[in-house]
């Protein structure tokens, strides 16, 4: 992409991004007819894209059992009916509602609203701009007959018809048979390599992120499968992009804006290791964790990624 695309991604983020807030305190959950109260929970409160609603997530709790009790089955679409995030402070409760469900948070601590650090916005926008150079890699509609789509794809590839092959990859997403099945990742890798050959960097990177995040449809999931599948993050280096900024940009999160392909923490840590760039990235994460001008949510994430590294 040209300089203008990076500039426009940055400006959009600068206008719309809002820091994700951290809240520590007691949660009272009235969801699906149940009533649960858990003390000393840490939640993140994130403004959703182009909406008045918030995504709520229990980040951690005092014990694993408390976390299981407090965690929310449905994170997005919560309306703030009492309180204000802009004026949030310790001791003043918030109430969120969605349909018949209700969540009351009694905060003992709320992270400051703060400003967004330019360096973090820049890293976020670097990733967003690169991924946005191609449209989303999969159509909403998927092939109804997996075997037939696979056979047509093989025929298009054998005939050297790259555009036709791309059109099949867009709809063909084989379902994994079990958590250890690496077939979905292999097909995504073939698709990514085709995009790479055709000079479609955004397409390549979107698929690369799915492989790094192990984000494929399967009939069963388990952490054994997640551990078994390689991230192939070393492939990033051959694209010529700034791998450190790209991986650091994946660490950064803001509310109010969206990007293709977000990764979970464990897979991101492993990708950083397998990229071969762990040492310089760890140094920058340590600086971010201690940087009082960065918002507290991203400082927590930097701390977590660094500790896991």
């Amino acid at each position: 992409p040209g300089m203008a695309q990076f500039q426009s991604a940055y400006e959009q983020a600068d206008r719309q991004a809002k820091p994700i807030r951290l809240v520590q305190g007691r949660i009272v959950k009235e969801v699906d007819g149940g009533h649960v109260e858990v003390d000393d929970v840490v939640l993140s409160v994130e403004r959703e894209v182009e909406a008045e609603t918030y995504a709520l997530r229990v980040e951690f709790a005092e014990t694993d059992d408390a976390y299981s009790e407090a965690r929310l089955g449905s994170r997005s679409g919560w309306m703030l009916v009492t309180g204000s995030m802009e004026r949030a402070e310790a001791g003043v409760p918030f109430v969120f509602e969605k349909g018949a469900s209700r969540i009351r948070i009694e905060p003992a601590y709320v992270s400051p609203a703060g400003r967004l650090l330019m360096e973090a916005l820049d890293a976020w926008a670097y990733v967003a701009a690169l991924l946005a150079t191609d449209p989303p890699v999969y159509d909403d509609e998927r092939a109804t007959d997996e075997e037939e789509a696979g056979a047509k794809l093989a025929a298009a590839r054998a005939a050297g018809d790259k555009e036709k092959a791309l059109s099949y990859y867009r709809i063909w997403r084989p379902m994994g048979r079990c958590s250890m099945d690496s077939r979905p990742a292999q097909v995504a890798r073939e698709y990514a390599d085709l995009c790479y050959d055709m000079g479609k960097l955004g397409c390549f990177l979107q698929l690369q992120l799915r492989i790094m995040g192990d984000q494929f449809d399967r009939v069963a999931y388990s952490s054994y499968g997640e551990a078994a599948h390689a991230t192939e993050a070393e492939r990033l280096t051959e694209t010529g992009l700034d791998v450190d900024t790209f991986l650091l940009g994946l660490v950064i999160r803001f509310g109010g804006v969206s990007r293709e392909g977000e990764l979970g923490g464990y897979r991101l840590v492993r990708s950083i290791k397998e990229s071969g760039r762990a040492a310089p990235i760890a140094a920058r994460l340590a600086a971010w964790a201690e940087d009082a001008t960065l918002d507290e949510y991203n400082r927590l994430t930097a701390t977590q990624i660094l500790a896991l590294l």
Binding site: Q24, Y109, R299, L300, T303
Partner: peptide, 18 residues
């Protein structure tokens, strides 16, 4: 760790305790 914000310190303490 003294340079970290309160919630990051709390997370780190619990992470080390596990």
């Amino acid at each position: 760790e003294e340079e970290l914000p309160p919630i990051a310190r709390l997370w780190l303490a619990r992470h080390h305790a596990k």
